[in-house]
């Protein structure tokens, strides 16, 4: 039982990062109806930039802020230079184009920073906390991850649900033409959606980097997990992305704990297939009402 609790607790921080990345995927999906497989590539790229800032300035907070900013810019660039022209020509080609962007970003990062894994040191201790006479599988850094993620999810949820901007954003995704009639600048909403997703992904990148090492391919698995969480959550739903992101973090931690880390991606993909067979729309999707 203690073991189960330990594995579960250990998975929460990881789950929070998966949730953030899934959140970014959902943001792009909602604004453009594209699954952006380049999202982790963008996050990897901005994390490298962030690491450079961190090493030269010594300030983790500054590094995080730069990552957020760089993430927005990169999201914007990918949207304007690649996705917008491709999407205009062929909507299904857009998804394939995101793979192209991913490969280009990984190759670019390899050329700039080299392929060797680099260490991204956590700003606070990343070893298990001692409490009530034992060491727990939760560190100060895990708590920091959890705090940053929670804050971000709360703020973004508020913006989406309670503000005119959020309403305009949701409407643009649902029916661009009618949204325009209501005075919404849909093209601006698309840009903001990509920029916002870029920033959220960048935060996820900076947060997860200390848990492993940073290399051009180090976020590939994160893509698998985040994609699974986003799809199971319904792709449309920010709540779904967060719930299943954290959920898959827990599940993966249990799989890793009881068997082996290499089984985690297989379990994740198997879960995806099974759930899509049972519930093709995901759990929180609103697309049912759209079909009617």
């Amino acid at each position: 039982m203690t073991q189960f609790l330990d594995f579960s607790l250990g998975g929460i921080a990881n789950g929070a990062v998966i949730a953030l990345m899934a959140f970014a995927l959902v943001l792009v999906w909602r604004s453009s109806r594209v699954v952006n497989f380049a999202q982790v590539g963008q996050a990897m790229f901005t994390t490298f930039i962030s690491l450079w800032v961190y090493e030269s300035s010594g300030s983790w907070l500054l590094a995080l802020l730069i990552a957020i900013f760089a993430g927005a810019i990169l999201g914007l660039v990918v949207h304007l230079l690649v996705m917008k022209p491709v999407h205009r020509a062929d909507a299904s080609g857009a998804i394939i184009a995101t793979f192209g962007v991913l490969i280009a970003l990984q190759a670019g990062a390899g050329m700039i920073w080299g392929g060797d894994p680099k260490a991204f040191l956590p700003p606070v201790a990343n070893s298990g906390l001692e409490f009530a006479g034992r060491i727990w599988p939760v560190s100060w850094y895990d708590l920091l991850i959890f705090a940053v993620t929670s804050l971000l999810v709360i703020v973004l949820s508020y913006v989406f649900i309670r503000t005119s901007f959020g309403l305009a954003m949701r409407a643009s995704a649902l029916n661009p033409e009618v949204a325009r009639l209501c005075g919404v600048r849909v093209s601006r909403m698309l840009i903001l959606g990509w920029a916002l997703a870029g920033s959220v992904g960048a935060i996820a990148g900076v947060l997860i980097a200390p848990s492993a090492t940073l290399s051009p391919n180090s976020f590939d698995l994160l893509l698998v997990f985040a994609f699974t969480a986003a799809v199971i959550g319904g792709l449309d739903s920010l709540v779904g992305a967060v719930a299943f992101g954290v959920g898959s973090g827990l599940a993966l931690s249990l799989v890793t704990g009881y068997s082996d880390a290499s089984n985690a991606p297989i379990v994740s993909l198997a879960l995806l297939v099974v759930i899509l067979l049972i519930k093709p729309d995901g759990f929180f999707s609103q697309s049912k009402s759209r079909v009617v």
Binding site: L167, A168, R170, C182, G183, D236
Partner: peptide, 23 residues
């Protein structure tokens, strides 16, 4: 052309936001 995933009130609110200035 109502937005299917928005409530009636939200649909109407969207019509009203065209004259607001918030960003």
């Amino acid at each position: 052309g109502l937005f299917p995933a928005l409530t009636v009130l939200e649909n109407v609110m969207l019509g009203a936001t065209s004259r607001t200035k918030a960003g």
